[in-house]
Design a protein around this nucleic acid. Structure first.
Length: 640
RNA sequence: GCCGACGUAGCUCAGCCGGUAGAGCAGCUGAUUUGUAAUCAGCAGGUCGCAGGUUCAACCCCUGUCGUCGGCUCCA
């Protein structure tokens, strides 16, 4: 009998002179750990608690507190659901059933067309299987045996999956009672461990993601280790629904979309205020950071797009128009136009880096099925800029840009963004040496500002590597907004040059960069982040004056005029309603400052202030209110 | 773009087996003169997404189309 030597995450080691499993090890450490154990990592690989350990291994027992364990639980829950489905629909054949962010899904091929009404029945069956507490057992088998087994089960999808598994890789199945599934594992030890779950929705999904294949029914669900966590998660989803920018956009009268212009936004006065504030703020920031704003045409002759390469690659995404036998395209991006501005003069190296910025309105004919409110539109405005520079200037420019992104996101009330470095894809232009230097410049810039990042291997653009900046909203959702991309290709294609110190022409490097990305989309993120309750500087109406009764209207108008004089966006509520109703309306419109005026205030020349988030503040001088509002607005405070 | 569901008043939604549409909120008018999340009453508001078809008769059934929603795919 060989000796098993186990090293635990804390560095301690244990030796066993008999066959042991992770569960045995857990038991030998403590019964509490054994109870909490879900699965284990052996040398970085997930295994079942019952997998025998061999030789010297690094063991990490996963308990219900480890993030990896949650994925295992959800994966086991997917199997549990599949078993229930098989019981209810014996003809069921299964595609893939992976874990995804916040849950899992399983693709199933059954004759019955599922609706959400079927979900409770499936859940019921799942709970029954949980009660049965069936053991989940792993079996490893030879490829031929596996193929044979699933052929016998009549599961063509699984057969296809096995065929795709590279030779030499272990093929394993997991059985729980009468149900067997092809699976790498690991899994929880028995169905009784999966208790807190919810099936959420049904959607169509093609087998292997190709529309040429049969469409399967995909059932989404989620699972947690405790009922509280499950409920918290479900509440979060409810909250996300309440904050949906499409719903708030209508309720707050910010914008609308209509059939005649699919994917293109009609901004209402209130929404346009938010827009102007966002744009104005960014304009100020870039002015202070050495950018020059330009404006370029929206419709440009086809020949420019041919030269830039867009016509070849993205023609079907471009709107075109025609006049006097010439074909034009509505710009899908601003860079070719910016290069035209660059090219209008003989540029010297002394002018670099040259930073040209534009709030450029772009149109892309996105597939109809992908449109989503402001988040994915066919017409959107980028806070775009192109920095023309030398290769040596990439580093400093990227550093400055990262700092700028951090500053801007913080202003909007977001924390430090998540950063991804997308490096060279298989299909690319430019020599490896140039890519090496550009990627290194991005890494060095990140190190210089002390920013941590994740690598996104092979996801760079064909023309250069890029950084992507994602912010996290108040519900913990991640939105990619900012980006900076190195471009070795387009300046050359469009013949951009500058005269170097050596008196010879050189091709500049171009950096594409945006902080917010699409302003439409960024506003949508803001709406959802704040749940429509915008900070004072962004609020369409900052202060609404509420006269107690009709006889206070004149005074209300005076107060409102005073506020307007100092630049506060204000209104008077002239409805013939009780204050309670006016407060309610103002509150529903999420107006930050409510200014109540009645007999007391009129006589004393004061105002009674109610804050959206903090309630009644009592009476104060009008000047105090003005100071309070203008201070909050000027500092772009998030809190009132 | 693909699959599915949906499209009725400004908004949210009812509308049975095919017999020419209804509520609440919002709006308007009147009464009320209001003190921190909804005062009462009346009135007005509709080519039932659009185009065809079936039928004596279509919001309802059929076909097409546009849009929206949920996914899939895509996202320079």
């Amino acid at each position: 009998m060989s000796v098993v030597r186990v090293t635990l995450p804390d560095g301690s080691a244990r030796e066993y002179d008999r066959e042991v499993t992770p569960l045995d090890v857990a038991k030998s450490i403590g019964s509490g750990l054994a109870r909490a154990a879900v699965a284990a990592m052996v040398d970085g690989r997930g295994v079942d608690l019952t997998t025998p350990l061999v030789g010297a291994v690094a063991l990490n027992i996963l308990t219900d507190r480890s993030p990896e364990a949650l994925e295992i639980l959800r994966h086991s829950c997917a199997h549990l659901m599949a078993q229930a489905l098989k019981r209810l629909y014996p003809e069921a054949r299964f595609g893939v059933g992976p874990v995804i962010d916040n849950g899992f899904y399983y693709d199933v091929d059954i004759d019955h067309r599922l609706t959400v009404e079927d979900l409770p029945r499936i859940e019921e069956e799942m709970h029954r299987i949980v009660k049965e507490n069936v053991a989940v057992e792993r079996r490893e088998l030879a490829r031929e045996d596996a193929l044979e087994a699933f052929r016998r089960l009549g599961d063509p999808y699984k057969v296809e999956l096995i065929e795709a598994i590279p030779a030499g890789e272990t093929i394993s199945t997991y059985a729980q009672g009468e149900f067997v599934d092809l699976c790498r594992g690991p899994h929880v030890g028995s169905t009784g461990k999966v208790r807190h779950f919810k099936l959420q929705s049904i959607a169509g999904a093609y087998w292997r993601g190709s529309e040429k294949n049969k469409q399967l029914q995909r059932i989404y669900g989620t699972a947690f280790f405790s009922e509280e966590e499950l409920e918290t998660h479900l509440r979060l989803l409810e909250e996300a629904k309440r904050r949906d920018h499409r719903r708030l956009g209508r309720e707050l009268d910010l914008y609308h979309l209509q059939e005649e212009a699919p994917g293109m936004v009609f901004w209402h006065p209130a929404g346009a205020v938010i827009w102007r504030q966002v744009e104005g703020y960014i304009r100020g920031v870039i002015e202070q950071n050495g950018y020059q704003e330009i404006r370029t045409p929206m419709i440009v002759d086809r020949s420019l797009w041919e030269r830039s390469g867009h016509w070849d690659k993205f023609r079907e995404m471009m709107f075109t128009t025609e006049s006097e036998s010439r074909e034009f395209a509505v710009k899908p991006m601003n860079c070719p136009c910016h290069i035209q501005v660059f090219n209008q003069a003989v540029r010297s190296y002394r002018e670099l880096p040259l930073r040209l910025a534009e709030f450029g309105s772009c149109h892309r004919n996105e597939p109809s099925g992908t449109l989503h409110g402001l988040m994915r539109a066919r017409n959107f405005v980028q806070d775009d800029a192109h920095i023309f520079c030398t290769e040596a200037q990439i580093g400093p420019e990227v550093i400055a840009f990262i700092r700028l992104v951090f500053e801007v996101y913080a202003t909007f009330g977001f924390g430090v963004p998540l950063i991804k470095l997308a490096d060279r894809p298989a299909q690319r232009v430019g020599s490896d040496a140039v890519w090496d230097r550009a990627e290194q410049a991005l890494r060095d810039a990140l190190a210089e500002v002390g920013a941590s990042f994740e690598l996104n291997p092979g996801e760079g653009a064909f023309y250069g590597p890029k950084l992507e900046f994602s912010l996290q909203d108040s519900l913990g959702r991640v939105w990619q907004c900012g980006t900076i991309q190195v471009d070795f290709s387009m300046p050359e294609r469009l013949a951009a040059t500058y005269v170097g110190e050596d008196n010879h022409p050189h091709t500049p490097v171009m950096l594409h960069r945006a902080i917010l990305g699409s302003i439409e989309r960024f506003i949508a993120v803001l709406i959802e982040h704040f749940g429509g309750a915008m900070p004072p500087w962004l609020a369409p109406v900052q202060a609404i004056v509420l006269p107690i009764s009709e006889r206070h209207r004149d005074y209300a108008v005076q107060v409102s005029a005073r506020l307007a004089q100092v630049g506060v966006r204000t209104e008077v509520d002239r409805h013939d309603e009780k204050v309670g109703a006016k407060i309610r309306n103002a509150q529903l419109r999420k107006i930050p400052y409510m200014v109540v005026v009645g007999d007391h205030e009129q006589e004393a020349g004061t105002v009674a202030v109610r804050l959206r988030d903090l309630g009644d503040q009592g009476s104060m001088e009008i000047d105090s209110l003005i100071k309070r509002i203008t201070t909050a607005v000027r500092s772009r405070a998030i809190e009132l």
